[in-house]
Design a protein around this nucleic acid. Sequence first.
DNA 1: TCTGGAAGTTACAGATCGGTAACACCCTAG
DNA 2: CTAGGGTGTTACCGATCTGTAACTTCCAGA
Lengths: 193, 193
Amino acid sequence: MADGVVERSRPRDRILETAQDMFHKHGIKGVGVDAITEAAGTNKMTLYRHFESKDELIIECLRATAAKASRVWDEFEAQHPGDKLAQLHAWVRKASEMLSADCRGCDMANAAVELSETDHPARRVIKELKEAQREKLVALCRDAGIGQAELLADTLSLLLEGARVSMQSVGAEGPSAQFVRMAESLIASFRAR
Amino acid sequence: MADGVVERSRPRDRILETAQDMFHKHGIKGVGVDAITEAAGTNKMTLYRHFESKDELIIECLRATAAKASRVWDEFEAQHPGDKLAQLHAWVRKASEMLSADCRGCDMANAAVELSETDHPARRVIKELKEAQREKLVALCRDAGIGQAELLADTLSLLLEGARVSMQSVGAEGPSAQFVRMAESLIASFRAR
DNA sequence: TCTGGAAGTTACAGATCGGTAACACCCTAG
DNA sequence: CTAGGGTGTTACCGATCTGTAACTTCCAGA
């Protein structure tokens, strides 16, 4: 058993962390609750004592992932206090770092692809979290002094989203390789307006 | 039984067409072979006489989908013979039409997300087909007289890929709503260089 | 009319899925 | 010391999954 995650922490935390990792690597429908509990060094009953269903576990995982992603925004502020333009460039750099060779994409976007049932309870959570991320990026662009902040933020969003999904289908040498170049020249052209 | 697809055509064709439709709507792992054969008005044994496994059926579906997509390029040429720039704008318009409210995204990209096993036989097929599509768009940009054809083609690719996945997570009112505007101003700025 | 092959039917194998019941264990708080 | 809550174990449920075997039906071509 991989002790790194299993060691002495509460079973609920181990389950949540392990599930996040396994959902990310193998997809939601590619992992069963048995596999999760075994990897977390616990058992199925304990999982169902803390989460009322697999769907709820999925939702909690998405929230946790979003919370982690939200923390990097604090890093941007810490590294470049008050300098919103520098923070925007930090966002681009951070985004490009996520495009590593074994990139499995955005957990929320992947979940939206996998959970095709339109009334799946996770879908509204995904939408909420994605909208919050969008508003953050729009605010960052606006505070960086860019005129058409919404349009720039949305364009950057689509580029990153596209890059992350493109990596999975065409690989790292595909269109996503040019992400930084695209993003930077986009920012430059928006600033020039 | 829905006669539209079931009517008098060879079982193999019905299975292929039905599988394409169901994989697209509900995802690959969201559909079993039983459901496919029943919807196709046939049975499981017949499926396994024509396809040696579900994986092979998946691959055949992806090839068929790509072939369909390839046919719209012929339409561009027919509508604007020789006028590559007009064909590029037709591509943008066609792409935006795919972003309808119930858009389920690109079958190949979705398959890449769902089939996370790195050695899955469908993955190399996906890569091949996506690379072919990329080269087509690059050629179109180049023949339209654009200098940095590869960069424009890759940027448009990422925007579209991002828009199609964004639709599924945030919905039609999200960043993807601005796709046409982004794509057109991109083309304009590349032409100005 | 005969025949061969494609298609349909039924049943099943073996595994895994999400989820639950009953019960034994251990540790800690009172 | 004792009571109780969190945890672990085992066994199980019904459903579904991919894939197969054995057999029947049907139709087209010779």
